[in-house]
Design a protein around this nucleic acid. Structure first.
Lengths: 203, 203, 203, 203
DNA sequence: GAGTAACCGAGACGGTACGTCATGTCTTTAG
DNA sequence: CTAAAGACATGACGTACCGTCTCGGTTACTC
């Protein structure tokens, strides 16, 4: 299980962090369009080859920068609910509130937009890029919904993937059309309708 | 209401079409990232100043190219239903099917992605850009939903904007994560759930 | 005989001069090794593509810069003697003195060294480069020597090309080994020996 | 007289040879311009620091590589003639023939050009570099000429240094202008003229 | 019908950034 | 302390586009 020691000077892990930090900083300041590898290198006080050694393109770099932003800044978002006392509906609501709040921060909204830009810009790696970086959320949502189906609270014939798509997609659409930020109560209203539609009619 | 006649040679309207066609062609071939004004000019057999005289940036050019693609290629999408015989639910279903089918064409999917890229790339003009170009769809959806509320078929307390956001957003999310295309039946399933949630409980 | 007018904006001849001037300036300051296209561009206040549009490499740029230095700065060197009263020997002496004096200026010495570096650096274009830029001198020397043969002053069996090679080559060798500059009297002494060797023995 | 034993692992003398060999190999293949420390290191299967530990720059490395080429490949060139039976004129002729023949080999011509490039590239170390590596030849020539003066065969007032400069310089000039190689008979013709010019008039 | 003013294509211009390569130094493990 | 390997900051490479400009030439109104 030991890592194989390659010859030569090992990569400095501190550079990775510096580069990702710089990427986020530039992203916030100038947006995805205004982000250049040169700026990132200068901000991180790092040579360009040091960046290219780790990330082959602007898109993959931004992808990782955003992913780290997800993981480090909002770990709570990863597991929508750990208390068994909460039912799926409450869990979904809790998650959605946390997500909306997280996205409410313009700095986090900028991360989502950057990721979206990276994916939409080059359709061929869109899937690998966008999916990979939102998969955690999507899977958490689906498993939560599935728990609701198992418990009999939700309809068994509902397409859970489609519901998860709609939850994440609606926030994305709001970010794109109402830059300021997605309104928390709007997302909550959507959840109302969706939950109503999901519940088993004979209860 | 007459247009003010400026002196000098008037602009050649045929160039507009040639440029927009070229833009779509390049967009399909190389994606938004691979689109350069230079390529568009070469493809349209037009000088660069001829483009800049009409569009000030890549984003606005792409915006118009996509909008024309919407308007000319799928006019049916604009008005979800003009036959009063159809109820709101049927109208929504019809519109959603048409939309999903339209987006199913990779060429049209590329247009949506390009528009998304343009908007996500520079947050400050995201709103003006993206909203402007998807507003028609969004408004049609909302007015259709509102008709359902008026007729008593849909709950009065539902946030119709949120529902419209979710419908459009879910397609967008699918485009970003499953490049091939959005699956038509998935969107249909989502509609099922949403309609169920929208319907007045005491029916 | 009219020049064909190509379409598009014509090149600005003033840039050529600015670039060549900058090249010479950098050459003097930093030598051939220290000359980079980037420095030349910055010094000439010109974009890099403007240079590459005209010269494909550092070597050809330096070649032209040195050639212009020859032509503009020391036109007298081109025609070794225009007074018919002077015999070939006097003409050679006059030319050699002028040449040695010209090369005595460190700025001109730097030009010759730069040209030499450009040629020696890449053997395949050495010939086209070096020969082209020193040909004028070489031809003038040979024709002068040939006049001496015709007039009977010089031996008919002498290899005039070899003599011209030696005259130019000796200055070059001195530049390379005694950087400060070639000593004028040394070249004059060489001329003494060569003239003595060239003269017809029975005079 | 014992070498001082320094602590630690001693340098491997075999590396020196490997590096110099690699330098010559790259020089032949790509010329001085195309030679990089990286290529040399790779060709010699040696780390870059191993090179920098021994030679501080590309120029000094090339200098030594060429010098070794001189010493090992054509030892005969070092001493123009050790048989007292030959007069200075014959010795000069013999040396010149050997030199011209040696230079006739394109591999050796490349060495001279590389040395020239190294010197011409940075005027400040031109002297130390070029002079050091051609000094042996130059001194041999001068001492040979001086013997001729002592014996009364050559004029006492001739500038022997200038003559030596011309001999070496003419070969250099030919290499620069006629890449293929210097023509042996041309150098021989030059020697004819020079010897004629050197000889005491009253013979 | 002559001006004139804006159009058109082509392409040069000063720039910025690209992604790659080489420089010379530093840091690691191994000998 | 040396050696090989390779990461590092730096900086130049030659190319692609940017958006502006300057050409010769065209087209359609205005006088």
């Amino acid at each position: 299980m030991d890592e194989v020691r390659r010859p030569g000077r090992p990569r400095d892990a501190a550079r990775d962090e510096a580069i990702l930090d710089a990427t986020r900083e530039v992203l916030l300041r100038d947006g995805y369009a205004g982000l250049s590898m040169e700026k990132v290198a200068a901000t991180a006080r790092v040579g360009k080859p040091t960046i290219y050694r780790r990330w082959s393109s602007k898109a993959t770099l931004v992808g990782d920068a955003v992913l780290h932003s997800f993981l480090t800044a909002v770990p709570g978002i990863r597991l929508p609910g750990q208390h068994i006392t909460d039912g799926p509906a409450q869990q979904l609501t809790a998650w959605f509130r946390a997500y909306a709040e997280w996205v409410g921060d313009p700095r986090h909204a900028a991360m989502i937009l950057a990721l979206t830009a990276a994916a939409a810009e080059s359709p061929h790696d869109a899937e690998s890029l966008y999916r990979h970086h939102t998969r955690a959320q999507h899977e958490a949502l689906v498993s939560c919904l599935r728990a609701g189906v198992t418990s009999g609270e939700f309809r068994a014939d509902a397409d859970l993937e489609a519901v998860a798509d709609a939850l994440i997609g609606s926030v994305l659409y709001q970010l794109l059309t109402r830059t300021s930020s997605a309104s928390p109560h709007r997302t909550e209203h959507l959840l109302d309708v969706l939950l109503a539609g999901l519940r088993t009619t004979d209860r």
